[in-house]
Simulated scan of single mutants.
Amino acid sequence: MSLIHKIGLTLIKGVGHVHAKNLLDHFGSAEAIFKAKGSQLMEVNGIGPVISGLILSNNALKEAEKQLVFIRKHKVKVLFYTDISYPQRLKYCHDAPVLLYYKGNVDLNHPRIISVVGTRNATTYGRMLCQQLTEALLPYGVVIISGLAYGIDVTIHKESLHLNIPTIGVMAHGLDRIYPPSHKPIAQKMLLNGGLLTEFIPGTIPDKENFPKRNRIIAGLADAIVVVEAAGKGGALITADIANSYDRDVFAFPGRINDPCSEGCNFLIKTHRAGLINHAKDLIYYLGWDDKLPDQSGLQSKLALNLSEEEQKLIGLLDNVTLSLDKLVLGSGFSQGKLAMLLLNLEIHGIVTALPGKVYKLN
């Protein structure tokens, strides 16, 4: 599929992520969309004469050619919605970006990814929690994601770099700049073990409305989101709400009841929008990352039971590993509804155990 057409699709004014995905489902490629006639375009759900006219009369491909110059010069990876390299956790979020721009050396489909968010006004307590969190996660082979902002974001990036944990910053602007500028040295180090990711084309400035859009990517990329410190309002709580809407696990460290920087965390816990964790070990337990492998002695007897081919396939996927629901969907090719029924039957037979964090293992 032509890269120019992929980029061009995202540059057509009036064609957002939902329309773009509907068009891709119908035509199969971005190039085919640009070649389609008006009558063909209007066969697509949600595409009327106005949007069809915008697609037919746009100047997006010329703009895409300009972007391609920057992309090639700076060796930017373009991750399109239909590409295998596109982050699969994010792909199943209803408002996932059609295209991402990435500079880095870490797989965005890494088996274990945690997003960490928090206030821009981090306290000594918050910085201590970031240090303890990274130290505890070090043996578990995780990738840590945040937003490269002031406060908790940059603290978790720094602590990750200090321990050589891969860390990725999701930005609210193009890859041609770093915001805030004072974090440029940190960002350059992150490119050596981690990366920088954005949905915004080069030249996009960090406008206020871009940050909530950025937050949905932080939420969608991870297995779980950890809120370290958060005020009563702000980006961290927005990210937590988005993560809940994606059916992601959200955890928060509690704080003193009169501390403004803990007000948001305490609220999330009190309203059951986040699980309470006192230590990173709690997070590891809830996600089933204790690395205890299931006993293999009974695997063959499990397979010998009167189980369907689909159930045996799931048992094979869970052989020697614990897997999240999302990874089982990807590995099996089953819909979430069908997968839930199969897992329930295996649980009833005592073959599979559901761990906290929507993670499954063989008994």
Rank of each mutant, 00 (worst) to 15 (best):
D83A: 10
F334D: 08
N320I: 05
Y150V: 10
L129Q: 12
C261I: 03
G14L: 07
A187K: 00
A230E: 07
I186L: 12
A354F: 03
T155V: 08
P206R: 07
R89Q: 13
E263M: 11
V69F: 00
L129S: 06
P111H: 11
G333R: 05
S301R: 15
T10W: 09
N193I: 09
I51D: 04
F334R: 10
H162M: 12
I269F: 04
G48S: 05
K270T: 13
N121A: 14
K91Q: 13
I152K: 02
G203E: 14
I165A: 07
K270W: 00
I186D: 12
W289G: 03
L323T: 01
G288E: 11
T271A: 03
L362T: 10
N210M: 04
N58I: 08
K208Y: 02
N164P: 01
G48T: 05
P166T: 09
H5D: 15
V76A: 09
M190P: 04
F200G: 01
L344R: 05
E31W: 00
S52L: 03
I315K: 01
I156Y: 00
G169M: 05
N109R: 03
Y286N: 09
G141W: 07
I47F: 02
G14T: 12
T204A: 14
V142S: 04
L314V: 14
E229N: 07
D290C: 10
G8L: 10
M1R: 02
V170K: 03
H94G: 01
N121E: 15
P206K: 05
G194T: 08
V44A: 04
I186P: 00
S332P: 09
H173C: 14
Y102F: 13
C93T: 15
L314D: 03
S29R: 04
L314P: 00
P111D: 11
D207T: 07
K73P: 01
I113Y: 05
I165V: 10
T239C: 11
V50G: 04
I145D: 04
R248P: 06
P202D: 12
Y246P: 02
K91H: 11
L161E: 08
L41Q: 03
F253V: 08
N244G: 14
S85D: 15
V18P: 00
L56H: 02
Y140V: 07
L283M: 12
S335R: 01
E347Y: 01
A219W: 01
D291I: 06
